[in-house]
């Protein structure tokens, strides 16, 4: 038995050595992303690096936005600042409630917002992948919350990203110059990413032939939304759920939108949160051609129309805003 245990230990030690060697070689001389379970996206899409670096310096804001690309490309903090409301956009690519939870744990106390606005796009509620977690860990400092995120998700890909991120920051701290720039949209201080394109890149034919989508939920994501509600309640932060507007065609492609509405309504009731679905709420007239860049991301004209309405809704829900 002793011989067996010592051999198993030796095999595991060799396995760790092979792992380190393979990852280090590819990281140095090739592309570490060739390994299916190793992903490291420093400075990748969505300007997460710049956003998280800026977030570290922010304190005592009034409104905090969290969610996926629809958030960082749809909630323009400058429009809030113009009205004297300090805001920060903490959206990242494909961010799920699970990712939002750990980002909030990391930042909520320091931001100390009056209100957290969380987008509940239907596709994100079904998401079980860890791509967004990889994006966040690749672009942030190692912290207890990041370690806890990896522990709870139990996905080797996240663990690998954490190890790589840790190893990298040991040799070279994160630097904003590592951020890749994207032609399609530019980072704006405050977390928003602005696009200057004025017309939808999808043709009307492509938009009208979107594949039907059946809404489903991943129980894990619903549980994390409940945990976010608890976290906000602990810190006495008002939580507002929103569904950012998408093209009418995309909304209509959801075969069971009623089921989706029922799920988020129940979540809002359980969480004691307000819920505004801007795909249903009257008063927002958006053109699929000019107010959107694709099926679900707003163009700047769409952002302005949407944010104007959102702002007045938030002021109604939280009358103390900007006072």
């Amino acid at each position: 038995m002793r011989k067996l245990l010592s051999r198993i230990f030796a095999v595991l030690a060799v396995a760790v050595a092979f792992y380190v060697l393979a990852v280090a070689l590819l990281f140095t001389f090739g592309n570490v992303n060739w390994l299916p379970n190793v992903k490291y996206t420093l400075g990748g899409t969505g300007y997460t690096l710049l956003r998280l670096q800026e977030a570290k310096k922010q304190k005592d804001i009034e409104v905090l936005f969290i969610g996926s690309s629809q958030v960082y490309r749809g909630f323009d903090t400058r429009l809030f600042e113009e009205r004297g409301i300090s805001a920060f956009n903490l959206g990242t690519s494909s961010q799920t409630p699970a990712d939002s939870y750990y980002l909030l744990r990391e930042n909520l106390q320091q931001f100390n917002p009056k209100v957290v606005v969380m987008d509940l796009f239907w596709e994100i509620l079904a998401e079980e992948g860890v791509e967004a977690g990889v994006d966040i860990i690749s672009n942030s400092e190692i912290s207890n919350n990041m370690v806890e995120m990896v522990w709870h998700r139990k996905d080797p890909m996240l663990l690998n990203t954490l190890l790589l991120s840790g190893a990298r920051s040991t040799f070279k701290p994160l630097d904003p110059s590592d951020q890749e720039q994207f032609e399609e949209y530019q980072y704006v201080p405050g977390g928003f990413a602005e696009s200057h394109r004025r017309e939808n890149k999808l043709s009307p034919e492509s938009l009208s032939s979107l594949r039907p989508y059946t809404f489903t939920t991943a129980e894990m994501q619903l549980n994390y939304i409940r945990k976010i509600a608890e976290l906000c309640a602990e810190q006495q932060v008002i939580l507002v759920f929103v569904v950012a507007p998408v093209t009418k065609e995309l909304k209509d492609s959801v075969e069971n939108y009623d089921a989706y509405t029922a799920v988020i309504t129940k979540l809002a009731q359980e969480s004691n949160a307000n819920l505004i679905d801007y795909n249903i709420k009257p008063g927002l007239k958006l053109s699929s051609r000019y107010d959107f860049l694709d099926a679900n991301h707003l163009s700047q004209s769409g952002v302005i129309k949407f944010n104007k309405l959102l702002l007045s809704d938030l002021q109604r829900i939280v009358p103390t805003l900007s006072k």
């Binding site: 595991l12 030690a13 092979f18 996905d155």
Partner: peptide
């Protein structure tokens, strides 16, 4: 034994790096 241990270690690392753990 050393070669065997190295081979098994390589297989374990291969599984960890290339496996799908969903």
């Amino acid at each position: 034994a050393a070669v065997r241990i190295a081979a098994y270690g390589a297989v374990v690392a291969f599984i960890y790096l290339f496996g799908s753990f969903k």
